[in-house]
């Protein structure tokens, strides 16, 4: 396992850095503890992974098992449809992040604020600045990066992982959620 340092080496943040997910159970517990979790998935989710195990496939499983709302950024909504998953709402990454920083925003369904965001599949540096915005301007929101690279502005992030290791962690997140789901 690689050290918890930003994948793009110069992208050092500040004093407050993401805790490293050493066990996937952490993610499962966070989802279970959250009142209103949200999953944000970007266009790289269709490419990141190996063979027929892409991040977008995990996103579908996580969304279903965690019973959470899904925002698909850029053209990812079409990718979800190709997977037969209808539950994703289209919204640009900048727009969803902006709304998450608004304490008055009531969510995609109008049912209230989110308290946990899982995010993955957005360009590393774009996700980096978005997580920075959320860290500073939505301080009560917990954020988890599902990508295989350390995202220092998240609340929790995987360290930089080899693909196989990362997919193994995601498998465990999915199975953990499936086991604890009711």
């Amino acid at each position: 396992m690689m050290r918890a340092e930003p994948w793009q080496k110069a992208e050092v943040p500040g004093p407050l850095k993401a805790s490293v997910i050493t066990k996937p159970e952490v993610v499962v517990a966070m989802v279970r503890r959250a009142r209103r979790p949200l999953l944000i998935v970007g266009p790289e989710a269709s490419q990141a992974g190996l063979g027929d195990r892409r991040l977008i496939d995990y996103a579908v499983l996580i969304a279903k098992a965690g019973k959470m709302g899904v925002v698909a950024t850029a053209q990812t909504v079409g990718e979800f449809l190709k997977k037969g998953f209808q539950g994703a709402v289209w919204m640009p990454a900048m727009d969803i992040a902006n709304r998450l920083c608004d304490p008055g925003w009531k969510g995609l369904d109008g049912a209230g604020r989110y308290d946990l965001v899982l995010v993955g599949g957005i360009h590393y540096y774009v996700e980096w600045v978005i997580l920075s915005a959320l860290k500073h301007f939505a301080p009560s929101l917990k954020t988890v990066s599902l990508d295989r690279f350390y995202q220092p502005h998240a609340t929790w992030s995987f360290p930089n992982l080899k693909v196989e290791e990362w997919l193994k962690q995601l498998d465990l997140v999915v199975s953990g959620l499936e086991k604890t789901g009711g």
């Binding site: 943040p13 500040g14 004093p15 407050l16 900048m94 992040a97 902006n98 920083c101 600045v129 978005i130 920075s132 915005a133 860290k135 500073h136 301007f137 301080p139």
Partner: peptide, 23 residues
């Protein structure tokens, strides 16, 4: 404006660096 801080610090004068994290 929707701010996407690119650095949590300010180092523009010698009172700093200042940590501007979260308010």
């Amino acid at each position: 404006p929707f701010y996407l801080p690119y650095c949590d610090l300010c180092c523009l004068c010698t009172m700093g660096k200042c940590d501007l994290t979260r308010g």
